[in-house]
Design a protein around this nucleic acid. Structure first.
Lengths: 198, 198
DNA sequence: CGACAATACGGAGATAGTCTCCGCTTTGTC
DNA sequence: GACAAAGCGGAGACTATCTCCGTATTGTCG
């Protein structure tokens, strides 16, 4: 949107890259342990950097979430490619929605961040989700062509519903000290959703 | 679980009751304005009491949410009674799930609190939700008897799904300054769910 | 009425999280 | 090896939660 559209963006300085990577690595552990609300200052501390450094690399929580999810996202995009080549488009859609929901459940609280960012072009999380929404749409269209589904839904609605079921399935108890044993409600709930699509 | 099960619980002192009511009234406004994450100290301040007073009456956020929702809950229970007498059990279920979802959307963030508390007997919110889950189950059973629905779902799953769709519908955008105009996605999403039940 | 116990109040402050500012350090380059 | 650019980090401002305990209010009896 300006004259110098293509900023040269010289490569990161060695120390900067080192810190960036350390933060992302530690963040993954912290989010896994405490959910997406893990303390950012604590992540900085555990990564051996000051809070200022963390916030310079990742101005907000979404940026850090996004960075820590990159690998999982790549795998998901690859899965989409494979599923688009699958003969059984209905089963492919099934598989895809489950994978999507499981991805959203990577960490406690992630569905919330994802669904909140979905409409927000500013958020890096939202931006990278739009790829997933597109894939969802393409897989759904193929399933419709094969008459595996008949419902009329937008790709965005489908994506959001998968996310919301992930959210519902990941909210087993609060306050009770007992560690939530992973009762896997997801397939059951998604089955109901798929039933509605046919 | 002890010998003196029926504690006499003498009536509240006049000043205590006055403060209790002021807090609940202000809390309703604050939750409406800022969602369920509204500052509790701020609510105390606006109600003209100290934080200590608020936390004595309502040891945690759920207690305050529950107290501020009492009237809406009563109306909902009354609706359940009416719907159970409705001849068209399918339509009654439809109406009920929508009412349930709208109730969960009374304030921003409420679906989260509700679904988190659903498995938690300790939470006053969870306790009062179990009534709603029961009503959901009874309405669903009637619809099944009339063959208006055929799916096999637990009342809890139905309740949680209604809550999760409410959650999904209430999360339109984040960060974008623009006030989210209330695009009403709820009926569309619930329609999909109902389709899956038939 | 007046006084005393039980009850309740409220605000100071401990704790914890977010995020910024800016003086200092490290890096890459010539 | 020296200089500018890039990057660091931690002190601290701000906001929120929740507790503790000295003080004030209430209801009840004599």
């Amino acid at each position: 949107m300006s004259i110098e559209a293509a900023a040269p963006t010289r490569p990161m300085r060695a120390d900067a890259r080192r810190n960036y990577e350390a933060i992302v690595r530690v963040a993954g552990d912290a989010f896994a342990e405490h959910g997406t609300q893990a303390s950012l200052d604590d992540i900085a501390c555990r990564a051996g950097v000051g809070p200022g450094t963390l916030y310079r690399h990742f101005p907000n929580r979404d940026c850090l979430l996004e960075a820590a999810l990159v690998e999982s996202r790549l795998a998901l995009n690859e899965l989409a490619e494979q599923l688009l080549a699958d003969d059984d488009a209905g089963a492919a859609l099934d598989t895809w929605l489950l994978a999507l929901a499981r991805h959203a459940n990577t960490w406690d609280g992630l569905p919330d961040s994802i669904v909140q960012s979905i409409n927000n072009k500013q958020s890096p999380l939202g931006a990278s989700c739009s790829t997933l929404v597109d894939a969802t749409g393409r897989l759904f269209d193929r399933a419709r062509e094969q008459s595996a589904v008949t419902a009329d839904v937008s790709a965005r609605d489908l994506f959001v519903m998968a996310g919301s079921l992930a959210w519902a399935a990941s909210r087993p108890r609060r306050d009770t000290g007992a560690r939530a044993e992973a009762s896997d409600d997801l397939p059951r709930l998604l089955g109901l959703l798929m039933r509605g699509l046919r």
